[in-house]
């Protein structure tokens, strides 16, 4: 008991409380960072413009991974008409916890006619990790948010499964105090849940791709449903949301899920945003 207490205390002392506060605004026809505040281990690299007016930002976690007791807080605010694409420099790792929960809070504020494309790389949840993420999008009327979340449970390449621990990932999109999409996912590390067709069906990777802010016509949904040629192993599904679209993946390959999501993204980008396809240089796919 004493040893456990000591462990918990040392984990508490070494825990990170990193934060990011970044504001984007449209300045002279292009989106620029107008305010930024960063606290280690979180950083945002200098913005770059590979496709004209859209501002691309890359988030960096300089400590390599998240341990129990860490609290990360990320705030991004897009002012009216700003257009930003945000990704992460590497996969996020959530290490095995010795008792404390690690938390990440993300607030994305997207003002009128702004568009935020949110494409972090995958999160690897180690066996025994206790993690909770709360991502909240405040979407103004006319604004668009699209994003994906890809999670690997256990370091599956070495045969590790998520048999212990707890993972919660709550994503909520609100518009003027009304919920547009609420997705509060929970996975308890347990052999039966991991193997059940109701849970992971023996797979290690799940992913969601979501587009919210504009309703999607049934024609576009039908077209998206035919974009399945790159998916061989995983299970996929597409459905309409009240003001958008949702795709889910459950399988064993991050390449497979990323390729599929990218295809869907590119189709929506050209049909609804009038933007050409783009592949981030940091993704290496």
């Amino acid at each position: 008991m004493l040893r456990l207490l000591e462990l918990n205390n040392s984990q508490k002392l070494n825990s990170w409380h990193g934060s990011l506060n970044i504001v984007y605004a449209l300045v002279d026809g292009a989106t620029a960072v107008t305010h930024q505040q960063m606290q280690a281990p979180l950083k945002v690299q200098r913005p770059f413009y590979p496709e004209g007016a859209v501002c691309h930002s890359v988030i960096l976690h300089t400590a390599g991974g998240i341990v129990g007791g860490d609290k990360l807080s990320l705030n991004f605010h897009l002012q009216p008409k700003a257009h930003t694409l945000i990704t992460t420099a590497a996969a996020s790792k959530i290490y095995r916890s010795n008792g404390l929960e690690a938390r990440q809070n993300i607030l994305l504020q997207v003002d009128t006619d702004a568009c935020l494309e949110w494409f972090p790389q995958e999160t690897i949840v180690f066996n025994g990790a206790i993690y909770r993420q709360d991502l909240r999008v405040e979407l103004a009327p006319g604004a668009t948010w699209l994003g994906w979340e890809i999670t690997r449970f256990g370091r599956s390449a070495r045969g590790e499964k998520f048999l212990q621990g707890n993972w919660r990932s709550h994503t909520e999109v609100w518009q003027q105090q009304h919920p547009l999409w609420i997705d509060r996912q929970w996975l308890h590390g347990d052999e039966q849940i991991i193997n059940s067709p109701h849970g992971l069906a023996g797979n290690s990777i799940v992913g969601s791709f979501v587009w919210i802010g504009q309703s999607i016509s049934t024609d576009v949904v039908e077209k998206i449903r035919t974009l399945n040629s790159t998916v061989e192993q995983g299970e996929i599904g597409v459905t309409r949301l009240n003001a958008g679209l949702l795709c889910r993946y459950r399988g064993n390959s991050t390449t497979e899920v990323r390729n599929w999501f990218t295809e869907v993204w590119h189709l929506l980008r050209s049909s609804s945003l009038g933007k050409p396809a783009y592949r981030s240089r940091v993704w290496q796919i």
Partner: peptide, 14 residues
């Protein structure tokens, strides 16, 4: 308030 809904959402989408 949270749930594990991978199986249900994929089944219903199918």
């Amino acid at each position: 308030l949270c749930s594990c809904s991978w199986g249900l959402s994929l089944a219903s989408m199918a």
